[in-house]
Design a protein around this nucleic acid. Structure first.
Length: 289
DNA sequence: TTGTGTTTTATTGCCTCC
DNA sequence: GGAGGCAATAAAACACAA
């Protein structure tokens, strides 16, 4: 390959064409910057280069410039032996060339050989230059992508960290509440120890109540095939209620009725509780059969 | 004009794939 | 083993402040 030297061991071309923009008037004419047909430096039908800038690389025997045809055909010549000039190592591509390459890069950031040659033809560049441009462009793209990925990860990390910090604060707050409530409980416990101990802890009663009775309505709810009903509590004090509950727990029979089986149409049991068998329901039962 | 930092072009050496 | 890709690097070209 042209200029690559080093471990590439490729085409070993020695003559490179200068392919840059039209140089300042003080510089030699740059033939390849013009569209191929307009390039006047090429002797028709040959690959000879007789009138263009011709320089060597510092650490290579290769000239900076070669014709596209030479690169493609693998030709070389010894003209560079005669055209040693002050070094002009690198030239920037024109804005138009770069824009063209950028558009091509957007389409596909890898370069197949055919595409490389076509681009080189279109731009008046060496295929090697096109390849180098794509390589460098990929490197820049990769760097930018890494920066973008880093920013994304950083933002994600910041968000998660904020969430984590909030959770820590909330956790601390809840711990404080737990401690305060525990303190209150301890104080209450001391006070109650001085009084005669209650037969059943209040917590247990309330808990049992909610298990036994629907907290929303006074009507009984049906539990696992057994109808239970709530006694009229209007005349029951809390102590009595606890006693009743104790009874319930020890002997629930008085508060339970056998489940109505599908074929059991007997009247519901009369009782003094709030469980009522409404007239409409009776009509329903009688009409249903 | 010059010093300095950045960008772009190109080289080199190594690696992988076919 | 050759071709091509990539990372690291050199160095020219460029931008810009002082």
């Amino acid at each position: 390959m042209a200029g690559g030297g080093g471990g590439r061991g490729s085409t070993n071309l020695s003559v490179l064409l200068q392919t840059q923009r039209a140089p300042p008037s003080s510089e030699p004419f740059d033939p390849l910057f013009l569209p191929a047909p307009a390039s006047s430096f090429l002797v028709s039908g040959t690959t000879s280069m007789l009138s263009f800038e011709h320089v060597r690389r510092p650490n290579s025997n290769r000239s900076l410039f070669t014709t596209f045809e030479q690169e493609v055909n693998g030709e070389d010549d010894d003209f560079d032996e005669y055209f040693l000039q002050p070094e002009k190592k690198k030239k920037r591509l024109t804005v138009e060339q770069v824009q063209f390459l950028e558009k091509s890069f957007e389409v596909e950031n890898k370069l197949e050989p055919e595409r490389k040659i076509q681009l080189a033809k279109d731009l008046g560049l060496q295929p090697r230059q096109v390849a180098i441009w794509f390589q460098n462009r990929r490197a820049r793209w990769k760097t930018k992508r890494l920066e973008k990925d880093y920013d994304t990860l950083q933002a994600s990390f910041n968000g998660l960290k904020a969430d984590y910090d909030n959770l820590l604060k909330e956790n601390d707050k809840l711990k404080q509440e737990v401690l305060q409530l525990a303190d209150k409980l301890a104080v209450k416990g001391k006070v109650k120890q001085e009084e005669p101990p209650p037969q059943k802890p209040v917590e247990m009663v309330s808990c049992s109540k909610s298990d036994m009775f629907d907290s929303v309505s006074d009507s009984p709810h049906y539990t696992d095939g057994v109808q239970s009903f709530e006694p009229d509590q209007s005349e029951v004090t809390q102590d009595e209620e606890e006693d009743e509950l104790s009874k319930t727990l020890s002997d629930p029979a008085p508060y339970m009725f056998p489940k109505l089986e599908d074929n059991d149409y007997s009247d519901p049991p009369a009782s003094s509780c709030s469980f009522e068998f409404h007239v409409e329901d009776q009509a329903f039962w009688s009409s249903a059969y």
